[in-house]
Simulated scan of single mutants.
Amino acid sequence: MLERAFERALFACRWLLAPFYGALAIGLFVLLVKLLQEIAHFALHALESNESQTILGVLTLVDLSFTASLLIIVMFSGYENFVSKFDHSDHKDWPEWMGTIDFTGLKLKLMSSIVAISAIQLLKAFMDVKASSDRDLAWLVGLHMIFVISGLLMALTDRVAAGHHDK
């Protein structure tokens, strides 16, 4: 009886994660504010910007949208995997991927998004290469390669583990 009560209490603790996902939703609103600031700055300086500055502005918008998409994936997948399932019967436009991403898929999507965001940051630095020192660029390249290698190793590890479970 004590064991059963302890297990129920542990199981109920999963709801302690819900505020974390709520905090990510607040982070999404903060990103929206930043997006609006960037759009205003981008639009106000569009006529006086050169090609490189325009590309940097667009890359910033892409970077913000990738980060926002990453937050959505983590919020929904994390909530469904660790807290509770969504009742999506009332939603006609329910995305197909929601409810199908397990923890392994979430890790890989997260790592892929981090690699993409890192690549955009690296591209932005190379677009404005005069503003960065060689040391800064080397760090950006090194960190990006660490993210790429980490993602590949994570995917390989998950593939090996999945193959091991199939036997």
Rank of each mutant, 00 (worst) to 15 (best):
H45I: 03
H45F: 09
A46G: 04
A46R: 02
L47P: 00
E48A: 07
E48G: 04
E48K: 08
E48N: 05
S49Y: 03
S49L: 00
N50P: 00
E51L: 15
E51H: 12
E51Y: 13
S52I: 10
Q53Y: 06
Q53A: 14
Q53V: 09
T54H: 03
T54P: 00
T54I: 12
I55V: 15
I55C: 10
L56H: 11
L56E: 08
L56W: 08
G57S: 12
G57M: 11
L59F: 02
L59T: 02
T60F: 00
L61M: 09
L61P: 04
L61G: 04
L61V: 07
L61S: 04
V62N: 00
V62T: 05
V62P: 00
D63T: 07
L64R: 06
S65T: 15
S65W: 06
F66T: 06
F66Y: 15
F66L: 15
T67M: 12
A68E: 01
S69N: 10
S69I: 11
L70A: 15
L70S: 14
L71P: 01
L71Q: 09
L71F: 13
L71N: 08
I72M: 15
I72C: 14
V74N: 07
M75T: 06
F76I: 12
F76R: 10
F76P: 01
F76S: 07
S77L: 05
Y79L: 12
Y79P: 01
E80W: 10
N81Q: 13
N81I: 13
N81D: 11
F82K: 02
F82W: 13
F82G: 02
V83A: 02
S84E: 05
K85R: 14
K85L: 08
K85G: 04
K85P: 04
K85F: 03
D87M: 09
D87G: 03
D87Q: 09
H88P: 03
H88E: 13
H88K: 14
S89P: 00
S89T: 08
S89V: 06
S89D: 02
H91V: 15
H91M: 15
K92M: 13
K92P: 02
W94Q: 06
W94F: 11
P95W: 04
P95V: 10
P95H: 03
P95Q: 07
E96G: 06
W97Q: 12
W97F: 12
M98T: 11
M98F: 06
G99H: 08
T100C: 07
T100E: 12
T100Q: 13
I101R: 01
I101Y: 01
D102G: 14
F103C: 07
F103S: 11
T104M: 09
T104D: 13
T104W: 00
G105S: 14
G105P: 13
L106T: 08
K107A: 12
K107Q: 12
L108N: 04
L108W: 00
L108A: 07
K109Y: 15
L110I: 02
M111N: 05
M111I: 09
S112R: 08
S112I: 01
S113K: 10
S113L: 11
I114S: 05
V115M: 04
V115T: 06
V115C: 09
V115Q: 01
A116C: 11
